[in-house]
Design a protein around this nucleic acid. Structure first.
Lengths: 210, 210
DNA sequence: GTGATAAGTTATCAGTGATCGATTATCAGC
DNA sequence: GCTGATAATCGATCACTGATAACTTATCAC
């Protein structure tokens, strides 16, 4: 007796999942090169070597492509945050290291960072991918929170409960990252000095005086 | 001899500058109600009681309308910043007052704030209005800088030159304002406590210890 | 082979920002 | 009052966008 028909995948030219990843790669590259709003579905399709309607066999909408990239960006951020203080005991230096990892993520992957934290959804979407991206974002924030909790547990922080301190620190870091991304033409002072000083400001504000 | 023909304005239905302002008002109201990206030129025209092509008699592009609104937002912010510490001597409290004025501006006028600091121009425009908006932004920042300079001159700040301290403080304030605007669905802690604590963090980081 | 189906195509839709040419409203000069 | 010039406006339309429908082709199980 033939086993239950499992409807095995047939694949073809662009075989299944590979084609999907090719589309995501093409989209991310174009986003990085031209900026998200300057990239059309036709651009993405051409870069992926397929026709524009073929995109919709893999993604239900353009926003979904962006949402998936957003989710991937959150995974990356989470991985970075989780390993930021590997092998380091809580100290002012390891605190600054955590901050630095966050800012560097924004500067190295501005498009991912934009998608993750700066883009406001036009439609307050209930899309599947949008929700998954949101969940991934909360996970990344959770990792950040866990890191901050280590410094709190070590008695290094000024008074204030953990959610409050974490959200304030996050806001402080996001402020510099997002402004540097959104206003590259602004007459910023020297970048390294600004980042270092800003992290010092946040460390002075969050950690106990030495 | 008739004086040189001066080509005096004829005006009409929507007489000149008034019509222009009506368009700006309509656009701002729609931006506030639906979000910038959900508003089309046809929407703006309908709200202003004219046809869509008529917009282009007053503004060369949709981006220009947004840029003018951006400029107006900067003027408002500047006015608020300049009067933030009126009648107050430099102190930790007046420093916090300045911070609070900035954050409140963002929360009370999220669309203006968005246009001013969060929106990235699709076309890296050399538009006239875009440059004026940028200039207005620099002026607003200059006022903020002048306020910070008062605290520096009073010897209240930690080491660091004025541009560095100002940019760091700005980034810290912008971080909270922009995140609250861009991610209203995030599980924030109680708003007043968060703002107060965040400003305390920044004050501790920027001002000398008491 | 043959049929079923996955994958991809061309053709097309409605909506967008923007432009063109024609039309209307206003006013100076007679 | 009329008339011509011009400011102000509109309907029609363009190229482009995201998205959909109907059709064709490639692949595989049998």
């Amino acid at each position: 007796m033939k086993s239950a028909i499992v409807r095995s995948p047939r694949k073809a030219k662009g075989q299944g999942a590979e084609r999907r990843q090719e589309i995501l790669d093409a989209a991310l590259a174009l986003y990085a090169a031209r900026g998200i709003h300057a990239v059309s579905t036709r651009d993405i399709a051409a870069a992926a070597g397929i026709s524009q309607p073929a995109l919709y066999a893999y993604f239900p909408s353009r926003d979904e492509i962006t949402a998936v990239l957003c989710e991937e960006a959150f995974f990356q951020l989470r991985a970075r945050v989780e390993t930021a203080t590997d092998g380091l005991v809580p100290s002012r230096d390891s605190f600054k290291r955590l901050c630095r990892v966050y800012i560097d993520f924004g500067l190295e992957q501005p498009d991912a960072y934009r998608v993750a934290f700066m883009i406001e959804k036009a439609r307050a979407g209930l899309d599947d991918a949008n929700e998954r991206a949101l969940a991934a974002g909360l996970e990344a924030f959770g990792s950040f929170r866990a890191q901050v909790a280590r410094f709190i547990a070590a008695g290094m922080t000024r008074p204030g409960d953990e959610p409050l301190l974490t959200q304030s620190l996050w806001a402080g870091l996001h402020g510099l990252a997002s402004l540097l991304i959104a206003r590259p033409g602004f007459p910023w002072v020297e970048l390294e000095a600004l980042i270092a000083r800003h992290i010092d400001v946040l460390a002075d504000g969050v950690l106990n005086p030495a």
